[in-house]
Design a protein around this nucleic acid. Sequence first.
DNA 1: ATTTATTTTTAGATTCATCTAAAAATAATA
DNA 2: TATTATTTTTAGATGAATCTAAAAATAAAT
Lengths: 223, 223
Amino acid sequence: MVSELSFTEENYLKAIYHLSSDGTESVNTNSLAESMNTTPASVNDMVKRLAQKNLIGYQKYKGTTLLAKGKKVALTIVRKHRLWEVFLVDKLGFKWDEVHEIAEQLEHIKSPNLIKRLDAFLGHPTMDPHGDPIPNEEGIMKETVRASIAEVAVNAKGIIVAVNNDDTLLLQHLDSLGIQLGSKIAILERMDFDGSVSISIDEGPKQFLSKSVAENLMITLTD
Amino acid sequence: MVSELSFTEENYLKAIYHLSSDGTESVNTNSLAESMNTTPASVNDMVKRLAQKNLIGYQKYKGTTLLAKGKKVALTIVRKHRLWEVFLVDKLGFKWDEVHEIAEQLEHIKSPNLIKRLDAFLGHPTMDPHGDPIPNEEGIMKETVRASIAEVAVNAKGIIVAVNNDDTLLLQHLDSLGIQLGSKIAILERMDFDGSVSISIDEGPKQFLSKSVAENLMITLTD
DNA sequence: ATTTATTTTTAGATTCATCTAAAAATAATA
DNA sequence: TATTATTTTTAGATGAATCTAAAAATAAAT
């Protein structure tokens, strides 16, 4: 009974979802406007419409929250977005940072059957190339565990999701090791005396990271 | 310089392309309206807009034709549509008759790079699951050769594109042989004395068709 | 508690794609 | 050729999604 939402409506719901996913209980007009790259007035118009469709809760001057129906839509969009990203990277060979825009379009394709088949074709992935979890059909997703290489257990596997430092020398060093955002990493050993670790990138050969490098490399753990 | 067309504009161009692909030099308002499932008045509005953008030629009461720019857009849409259909059938396991609607949506995804990669991923197909040719990047496509099984050379391969008869018994017979629209067929031998042929469906075992069945089965030849 | 600043809402326009109803042009027929 | 039928176009409206500019409400600061 969620009649047939426009791309714009879907994008608003997704934006509200993302803005409230960090515990914020109510999303205000201004931040939504910024996130949607539009004006507060436009947001206000749209918010009224979504509220009337019982997708979001809204009271004048009090911001908005997703209602059950709206949250379900948002999670479906997020699911589709992240599945398509996996497709683009794993099957079509796109780089981690090239896929967002295309997935922004693909996420609005309407066909539950398509997504079911795509999911199976991709091997039911639980994480997208950025290390973000993919909601299942019920909208449930694993909580992602984020940690630096320095604090993670030996034998852990994960995806590089951030570098806590923009020092050019560090970035060049990572580059020479073949480490990029989205790379799959396995922690092989940790040397206790100096905190250095041996790792493998994308199933490649063993390589070494000093403690200071390891501390700056953030990953999300893969199952 | 084809700024950024809306889905609707793209669909109009595609419709004009299809309506004029059978030699008709000029597409009239009424048939476009029927094809677009809308009113002549709406068509008239849109046609003016497309003409102003130099995508189509239009003179009052004289119908429309695609100009070079519009034809290029139309062929790109057709290319995308058919490539996505191949993806849906070959990779996701959809049936021949389930893919059109989804491809209607996917054809509007804007990313030349995506299509380039998809094309490579699919092995640069030249024909879609319905036996229609896929335009290349320059908009050029092979002419399809359509013929009945009865008139085609031994060793020919093709795709079933039509059954020239809606006799239930014939359809049931084809069904029992595993023959559907979209099936790949190879002609193995022809018995001259009765015109019957032996064939293989989707690389399956050898099967036999009587002349009367062969006459009713239309295929397009694969390269 | 006023004043000032920020946020949010309203009012009124605009653009796109559409519609209905009616007028105008063209084509077909008697 | 006059009449009828068909096709096409115009005129005027509507509903989304947006905008700008200004008013109203709330929050922050003096």
